[in-house]
Design a protein around this nucleic acid. Structure first.
Length: 308
DNA sequence: AGGATTTGACCGAT
DNA sequence: ATCGGTCAAATCCT
């Protein structure tokens, strides 16, 4: 891997972060051996290590593991989540079997931004659940016959968290991916560690009560002001084969997670070798990259920041 | 007016 | 028989 790829940039940054976290842990241990903050430093270290491991694994061409749920709020979220395998050949069943395999994620965020435009088509009270389950399908089902759907269920124990199950493949993302995907995020303000972007709100009635960026009707996108105030909450989502979302400042390390890494690898635009330095001083040219539909046509990459 | 969402009904899976 | 996923008419919103 070379520094020519975003993955390489991420790897180097994460390695630096890993060293910093280790240093922080040492400092905390030295100043206060019983400090509970050491665990925090250790957690950061673990996150960095996971990202690095994943990056290297991805670089060696390893495939992702079987589907699993990613818990954004949990202390030890799994490193990866994937789409369900492609449906078997033949006409798709009109109704999927109960408990059919799905890609699930639990997000603590108020927004559910995954780079796709979803249209709500149903809502149902579910036994044993206080909150109704919401049903969405890809907005491009009509034009492109995309069969991807998702189910959003507010979790019982964490009302602010949503469990989202994804079914089916986005057939609209192939040759006409650009038509399916919203334009890439417009603003990235790395200089203040706030990552700006368009937030989907998915247009389809996603549970996005606090979405800070609106999506204009018809799939158009508007962007947050570049001068928006910095945020302590960072939302970042990348989508390779499934949706990802991190919306917790404490999970910034998770932010550059496995999906991000694979995403960046998939993107593989060429960056200069000084990218890390540029990143750190806030001058890294992400914005132009993110605004270049050519780089993102085949990608499902979304970066979101909620300004508070 | 056209598109998006809501909501009751329908129907297949269990 | 019940549950849950989808349909589609009604309604809302821009």
């Amino acid at each position: 891997m070379t520094m020519d790829t975003p993955a390489a940039v991420v790897l180097e940054l994460m390695t630096m972060g890993q060293q910093s976290a280790k240093h922080l842990g040492d400092l905390l241990r030295a100043s206060s051996p019983a400090s509970p903050h050491q665990e925090l430093a250790a957690e950061i270290l673990r996150c960095c290590s996971r990202v690095i491991d994943t990056l290297r694994a991805a670089d060696s061409g390893r495939k992702r593991k079987a589907p699993e749920i990613s818990y954004h709020q949990e202390a030890a979220p799994p490193a990866a989540a994937v789409w369900s395998p492609p449906p078997p050949p033949g006409p798709p069943p009109k109704r999927r079997a109960r408990g059919a395999e799905a890609v699930k994620e639990v997000t603590s965020g108020t927004t559910t931004v995954d780079g796709f435009i979803w249209r709500k088509y149903g809502q149902k009270e579910i036994n044993g659940h206080k909150h109704p389950r919401l049903y969405y399908r890809c907005a491009h089902k009509q034009q492109q016959g995309c069969n991807a759907t998702r189910r959003v269920q507010r979790t019982q124990d964490h009302p602010a968290a949503y469990e989202i199950a994804y079914y089916g493949e986005h057939t609209c993302r192939g040759a006409s991916a650009a038509a399916c995907h919203p334009p890439p995020p417009a603003v990235v303000d790395f200089g203040s560690t706030s990552w700006g972007s368009a937030s989907a709100g998915a247009g389809g009635g996603s549970p996005s009560p606090a979405a800070s960026v609106s999506q204009s009707q018809g799939g158009g996108w508007s962007s947050p002001s570049a001068s928006a105030s910095p945020s302590s909450e960072i939302g970042f989502e990348l989508e390779a084969h499934g949706p990802w979302e991190w919306r917790d400042a404490a999970a910034v390390e998770e932010l550059i997670g496995a999906a991000a890494v694979e995403e960046l690898i998939g993107a593989a635009p060429c960056y200069g070798s000084g990218a890390v330095t540029e990143f750190l001083n806030g001058s890294f040219g992400w914005e132009s990259v993110l605004n270049d539909p050519l780089d993102f046509a085949g990608l499902h990459h979304h970066i979101a920041t909620t300004f508070q």
